[in-house]
Computed example of a mutant assay.
Amino acid sequence: MKAIIIGAGIMGLATAWGLARRGHEVELFEQGPVPNPLASSMDEHRLIRHPYGSHVGYARMIDDAYRAWELLWADLGQTLYEPTGTLALTGNGADWAEKSAAALASIGKPMTELSMSELPQRFPLLDTKGMERAFWIDSGGGGVGRGQGGGRGPAHPAPPQGENHRPTPGGAPPGPYLYFGFSAPKRARVLREHAPLAPLFGAALVAAALLHPLDARAHAVIDGGTAVAGSYHKLVVRITHGCDGNPTLAVAIDLPEGVTGAKPQPKAGWEVSVERRPLATPVRDGHGHTATDRVARVTWAGGRLEDWQFEEFAIQVRLPDRPGDTIRVPVVQRCSTGEHRWTEVPEPGKEPVRLRNPAPALRLLPRP
C-alpha cells in the first residue's frame, strides 16, 4: 500500500512511522520544517504518568504507551527516557490527587500517600505551603529532546501544575537530546530522513493504537532494545504484568545460539538456576579459558511478582559479533494460574508486529 500523509505533526509523524514499520510506502508532506516550530505538539520534552485524576481510561493507556516507547527506542537505537516517579499534590480544597489515587487503586496500581512532614526531606526543592495531601507512585518520567535548531533543553521536564518529580542531586544534568526518525522502505519518500519527534507521549499513544494488540501488548521486553555486537552486555528483561491479573511466580529466559558467557544476576527472594548445553564448537571466553558449553536457559523461581508491579531480570552475556542482526530471546512467564509464553519469532520477511506473543528482541549495532 502507498500512503500519502499531509502534515508532519505528532499524528502525521507517528502514523508514518507505524505504516513504514508494517512495510508500506509512505510519503509525508509538511508545509514547514520538520518538526514545524509552529505545531501545537512541538516542544523539547514531554512527561508520562499514570495519575490522571478520575480518568481511568487514560490511566489504563499508559502501560500500552510504555510498550510503544520500547518500539520507538528500538527503532531509534537508544533509550531517551528519564524515570522519575510521580508526585501528585493537592491544596486549597482541590481533590485531583485523591481522585488519581482512587482511580489507580481501582485498576491495581495503588499510590502511596505521603505525610506533609516528610515532603521537605524527600523533595527539598518543593515549597509545601498550601499543600494538603500528597500521593506518590514509582512510575512516570520524561522523554526529552531538542528542536531542529540544536538549542539545549532541560534533561528533566518542568513539572506541570499539580505535580512535581524527584529532583536530581546537584541539579539536572545537560541532555540527553532526542532525534527520532522512522525507517521507511527504500522507495518511500520522506521529506526528512531523521525528523525530530519530541512529543513522545502522544506519539507513543498513537503508536499503541496502531500496533495494539500486537507487540504493544507484550508483557516481556528487553530494556533498551539495542546493544553493540560482540560486546559484553547486561541483558535486562522487564516483566510488566502478570497473567490475567495473577501474580508471576517464575521467569525463564532462553538464550539463543551465539550468546555466550552468561552470568545471571541474583535477586532477593528468588532462586536462580541455569541449564547448560554443549557448544558445537568450543570458544575462547576472553579470560584465557576454552568454553565447551554455554548457559541456554536461566530461571528465577520462588518469588512473587504481583500483577500491578513490574520487575527486571538481568543476565550478563557476550553477544554474537553480527552487527545488523536482531536476536530473539524467548521468555516464559509462569503465574499462580496460567502462564505467558513470549516465544514467537518472526518468519523471514514477516514484520514482528504481526506476532501476538513475540519473543523480546535485541538489535545488534556496529561498534562505534
Rank of each mutant, 00 (worst) to 15 (best):
P185H: 13
W270V: 14
A103P: 03
P213Q: 08
R67Q: 05
A20G: 06
V298Q: 09
P37K: 01
H233G: 10
D64E: 04
G7D: 15
D325T: 00
R356L: 15
F313M: 11
N164E: 00
R21G: 12
A97S: 11
S117A: 08
E193H: 14
P368M: 03
W69H: 11
A203R: 06
Q309T: 04
F313R: 07
T112D: 06
F182D: 03
L355D: 14
A227F: 12
E311D: 11
G142Y: 06
P37Y: 00
E275W: 13
H24V: 05
I137G: 15
R363L: 13
T168V: 04
L114W: 09
V221R: 13
L210N: 07
A14M: 10
L104G: 05
F135I: 05
V26S: 02
F310D: 09
K350F: 07
P199A: 05
R297F: 00
A314E: 08
K109F: 12
W270Y: 06
V345R: 15
W308I: 00
P33K: 01
G9Y: 09
P323Y: 04
R318Y: 01
G170R: 02
D293N: 15
K2V: 00
P213W: 10
L211K: 00
P352I: 09
G224A: 14
L305A: 02
E339W: 15
P282T: 14
R276Q: 08
A195Q: 09
M11W: 14
